[in-house]
Amino acid sequence: MGSQTQSKADQPWRRWIAERTPQLILVPTIGATLIYVVGFSLWTFWLSLSTSTILPDPTFAGFHEYVALWKSKRWIVSFQNLFLFGSLYVAGALFVGTLLAILIDQRVRFEAVWRTIYLYPLAISFIVTGTVWRWIFHPQTGVELALKDLGWIGAKFDWITDRDLAIYVVVITGIWHASGFAMALILAGLRAVDGDLVKAAQIDGASMARTYRKVILPVIWPIFLAVAIVLLQFAIKTYDLVVALTQGGPGVSTTVPAIVVYDLMFQRGQIAQGAAAAVMILVALAAVLIPYTLFMIWRRRQEGNQHG
């Protein structure tokens, strides 16, 4: 090693930098993440406690806007829709996804082709998905008109313009979009199940349906849980799909929380209440994710204890 490099390396500040290169490189990320995750969240929370309307206004108003929000009918409807949509969407996607995964698991030919077909909706946006299905569901362009054209004059299929049924249009479209995702993960789970377990069931004379129901599916429940958690997150954040499909209508019948947030913040000039609604979305996400995370940590610890 040359004497010059030696002396260079001996300079204390150079060594200090050399030793801390990794931390120094992370500084911009740390800064951006702190601002983005912590700063932005606190900022929005602070706005939700203020009297802001069209412009931010720092006057403290406590939880006044939260009270007003939970008294508004639109918000209540949006939360009811979230529960209805969320549960049907998760259950439907899990059911269809499980069915598809089991079908593909039957040593079928062209497996890759089937998987590619079932999963492709996930690659296209909610906007495209919603627009496509809006045309299909709408009485003036879709199924109803096609049935009439075939000669069934009295045909009626107007769920998308029906206040009571429009939410199910959102559910069906959501399931169409997400069931391939459930399939992909469940199929991976099925493939990882211990073959001996399955053989044992077969030797005991269990039928195929019984083998799946009693032996295979119970083993992969953590995957069902993981998929359900991810889909629940999607459901809570749902925005684009409803905008493209029904724009929250007819009336407010398919409004979801994220649409209310957008309207309050950018259409009605009620920033504080919009911020309060955004905080409620965060709370809903936390209500799903925190118990799940704690449960996973607990489970990992249990397993650790068992295996010594």
């Binding site: 702190l34 995750v37 900022w43 954040k237 955004a278 979305i281 965060l282």
Partner: peptide
């Protein structure tokens, strides 16, 4: 902290 950013809903960041 970085992972939390994955879950943060976009609505919380719109006004900032």
């Amino acid at each position: 902290l970085v992972t939390l950013g994955v879950f943060l809903p976009a609505q919380m960041t719109l006004l900032p």
